[in-house]
């Protein structure tokens, strides 16, 4: 180039990063996966957020269902009902999923997951096997459901030389009020921001206090601060599903305040797997040793746990994350 800056990209480097897959299948690696295998892989890696049948958990995306809802109130947009290209699903699963452990799946696992998503949408039979060979043959129901941006024609009337300035309408009525619905985040004061002026002042002050009160680890005397700090970093791997600290709530996983030394399967309001619930009722307590064993290989430690995390490989990380968890009562 003109500036002679940069260096040639090596073929191995391009191969490592250039993973995108186009609608015609360009970019797909060789491989295959069956619906049957997909059901297992999906249960292990995806079901924690997307549900066993791709029906979605909490606010996480539903991947199946919603056929023929696009022209109705609140359409349900899933891979089956909305996505135009199967390549998009393959590419996204391959590069961006599972959430918190991206790019950990083999091509065959991705084929299997995508095959299972198709099956969940009643688009293929239970003996279907998806591969790079038959990929282009699968057409999604909404493939023809998109038009290219036509605002300049369908909304041409929004371009106008002379917008109305006077007597633009006879009457004006309020037809809907946000106050009625009241879904504005409560910033700490009373009911939303539209209180009386004095109330509004209270709201803003309360919000200020809220930010000042960063969730600060409560340090018990015996804690090793360096280890707690290291554990805070390791805990990033857990944060996709677990909250800890002031105001922590159950999310995809239970909140973890006070978990060390606490009975298993016993956080209020969290829906545990049956095995976890049974273990807790059977007297399992999360001592540091038990927790360490669980975190090393969750699924080996407890068959049937909903925790999809593969486990922490390094003992140092396990020790650190437990120290970190101990800092929250």
């Amino acid at each position: 180039g003109e500036f002679g800056l940069g260096r040639p990209a090596l073929p191995e480097e391009i191969a490592a990063w250039d993973l995108d897959v186009s609608p015609d299948g360009t970019g797909l690696p060789a491989g295959e996966g069956s619906v049957e295998d997909g059901e297992m892989v999906f249960a292990e890696h995806c079901a924690i957020c997307h549900g066993d049948f791709a029906e979605g958990v909490d606010n996480w995306p539903k991947l199946a269902g919603g056929m023929d809802t696009l022209d109705r109130e609140d359409p349900l947009k899933t891979v089956g009902s909305y996505w135009p290209h199967l390549s998009t699903a393959w590419d996204y699963v391959n590069r961006s999923m599972p959430f918190g452990n991206a790019q950990s799946l083999s091509p065959d696992e991705v084929y299997a997951i995508v095959a299972y998503i198709l099956y969940s949408n009643d688009l293929v039979d239970d003996d279907f096997v998806l591969s790079n060979e038959n990929f282009a043959e699968v057409e999604l129901p909404n493939a023809g459901g998109f038009i290219i941006d036509d605002r300049e024609t369908s909304e041409a009337h929004f371009w106008t030389d002379a917008p109305c300035m006077e007597n633009c309408k006879d009457t004006v009525e309020i037809t809907m009020r946000a106050r009625v619905l009241d879904v504005t985040p409560d910033t700490g004061g009373d009911n939303a921001a539209a209180a009386e002026p004095e109330g509004a002042a209270t709201v803003t002050e309360a919000a200020a206090t809220e930010t000042a009160a960063e969730p600060a680890p409560v340090e018990a005397a015996a804690l090793d601060p360096d280890l707690v700090a290291a554990g805070e970093k390791t805990f990033k791997k857990c944060k996709a599903c677990h909250q800890v600290g002031e105001g922590a709530k159950n999310k995809t996983g239970p909140m973890l305040n006070g978990i060390v030394g606490h009975a298993a399967g016993a956080v209020d309001g969290f829906k545990y797997s049956k095995p976890m619930q049974a273990a807790g009722e059977g007297g399992l307590v999360w001592t540091e040793d038990e927790l360490a064993a669980f975190l090393a290989k969750p699924k080996a430690y407890m068959k049937g746990t909903k925790m999809s995390f593969a486990g922490l490989k390094k003992e140092d990380d396990i020790a650190a994350v437990i120290e970190y968890l101990k800092s929250f009562e």
Binding site: D71, P75, G145, I147, I148, D149, R151
Partner: peptide, 13 residues
């Protein structure tokens, strides 16, 4: 997504 269920794409501006 428009009222008839078709959707606009490439609505970048």
């Amino acid at each position: 997504t428009l009222e008839d269920g078709t959707s606009r794409k490439w609505t970048w501006v």
